[in-house]
Structure formats: C-alpha cells, structure tokens
C-alpha cells in the first residue's frame, strides 16, 4: 500500500494547478523512491515530468509499484478543499480503485477526508536522454513569466538565443517586434534575484509562447526557474519542488522547425 504524508498541501495543489491545462488524465506512479508523473499534452508538443522523491514526504511508505490514474480536473476539485498549509496524506491500496486524501490543519483541529475515484490510463512513457545542455539559465521564475507574457502580446513564438553577450528573447508579430536580453547578474543581498548563465556553445531556437506561458503557471512553486537549451533538442524548463534535490517539476518543449 501507499501512504505518503506531505507537510504542506500547497506543493501538490500548485503542481496540479500548473499542469492541469496541459494534461487532463495522468498516472501518478508510486514506488519506494517516491511519486512520479510523466505526460504529454494532447498535441505531443510538450512533456510534463514531475518527481517527488520519498524524502519529500514524512512518513513515506510504498511497498509495491502503484499507478494512480487520475483525472486532474477531478483532483483539482478535491484539492480545493485543502488549505495550503494543511498536512496532506495520500493513501492507496496495492490495486486501488480510489485514492484517499486526508487534509489536516496544522493545529489538528480539522480533518477532512476525501476518496477520489481512479481510472485506468494506458500512458506511453518516453525515455528522456541525459543531455549536456549548451546553455543553462537560472533566473527568477516571475521574471521568466513576465518575459513570456510580454512577448506573447506581440507574437505566437519566441526565438531564444544564448551567446557570450547573454540570453536574448526575440519575437516579431503583426504590430511590431520586441526583444529582451538578460545578462549574468549577482545580487549579494538577495540571491533569489540572481541570473546565472552557463554557456558552452551558442544556441538559437524558436518555441511556441503559448506553451511557455503555460509552463510559467508553475512560477508559484519556486522563486527560481532553470532553463536549459541545446540546438535541435527540446527546451527544458525546471522548477524545484522542495529544498531537497531531485524533487522537481519539469517541462520539455519541442522546438519549432523549418524557419
């Protein structure tokens, strides 16, 4: 059976909120190392990958591999009943037809219990190769969201260029064009404001802004976002879910082709 207790329901609430417009139904794959999710959007342009390692929970117990087939719209309805600061416990049997969710207020003076019906989801799993990216950018997540939102007002796609001069986001549309250039920046007093750029070779790729703006719904999960680029491979946009390494929400986006 599965029993997983999260100290803050906020993490799961925000993960589901960030992905529910990209993915409707997905399996939460539970095993002794934690809970993982991988799903493509309907048009197979983007891939969502979530990992919540066992050490993100206390306690965590999962004796056998269990796939929890969940409709995210339904899960959202249940999670709406949890306060961000509630303690969240997930429970399921080895071959479950429902997922039990318990929300406890931190004072333990309120306990809510829900059972969510599960579904059989036959989902393809993709192998994501280990990639040495040509450019890795770590920046404030709200800043990345602002850039994507601002540029989407002008165009449906953005070209991201990484060079020794910095990272340049460029778009052009019917009303005109725009660009934003980021340079490495270290704020000693406020590390969250840092922009870190690692570059091994210049990169230029074009992506659909609609998807990038969608990924930015995860900005509430983490102060910083890591963006990884290499020529002719999908873009990786990654948000840390906890302070522990390995628990993250990742989005992969196939580049635009032919121009």
């Amino acid at each position: 059976m599965l029993e997983a207790r999260l100290d803050q329901a906020e993490i799961l609430k925000k993960v589901v909120d960030a992905i529910k417009d990209l993915v409707q139904d997905c399996n939460f794959d539970c095993n002794d190392s934690g809970i993982a999710l991988q799903a493509m959007d309907n048009s197979h342009v983007a891939l969502v990958s979530m990992n919540l390692q066992a050490d993100s929970f206390a306690p965590y117990r999962c004796d056998r591999n269990i796939a929890l087939g969940v409709n995210l719209t339904s899960l959202t309805k249940v999670l709406r009943a949890a306060q961000n600061t509630d303690i969240l416990t997930l429970r399921a049997l080895d071959a479950p037809d429902s997922l039990n969710l318990v929300f406890e207020s931190q004072d333990k003076d309120r306990i809510s219990e829900y059972d969510l019906k599960l579904m059989d989801i036959d989902q393809e799993h993709l192998g994501i190769p280990e990639t040495e990216y040509a450019a890795t950018i770590k920046m404030p997540s709200v800043e990345f969201r602002r850039i994507c939102t601002d540029l989407m007002a002008l165009s449906e796609s953005v070209t991201i260029e990484a060079s020794k001069d910095g990272i340049k986001f460029t778009c052009s549309g019917d009303i005109g064009n725009g660009s934003v250039t980021l340079r490495q920046h270290t704020n000693v007093e406020n590390e969250k404001e840092n922009i870190e750029i690692e570059l091994s070779e210049p990169v230029a790729l074009t992506f659909s802004l609609k998807y990038l703006v969608n990924f930015c719904k995860a900005a509430g999960l983490s102060n910083t976002v890591t963006i990884c680029l290499s020529n002719e491979v999908p873009l990786l946009v990654s948000y840390a879910l906890t302070s522990k390494a390995g628990s993250n929400l990742r989005f992969y986006l196939a580049p635009k082709i032919g121009d």
Partner: peptide
C-alpha cells in the same frame, strides 16, 4: 501545429 516539432521525435518510447 504547423512548423512545430513533436516531442516524440526527440524522446524514445520506453
């Protein structure tokens, strides 16, 4: 979508 690559052409099925 036109001009848009598929993620499946980059990542292999397991």
């Amino acid at each position: 979508p036109k001009g848009q690559g598929s993620i499946m052409s980059f990542f292999n099925k397991k």
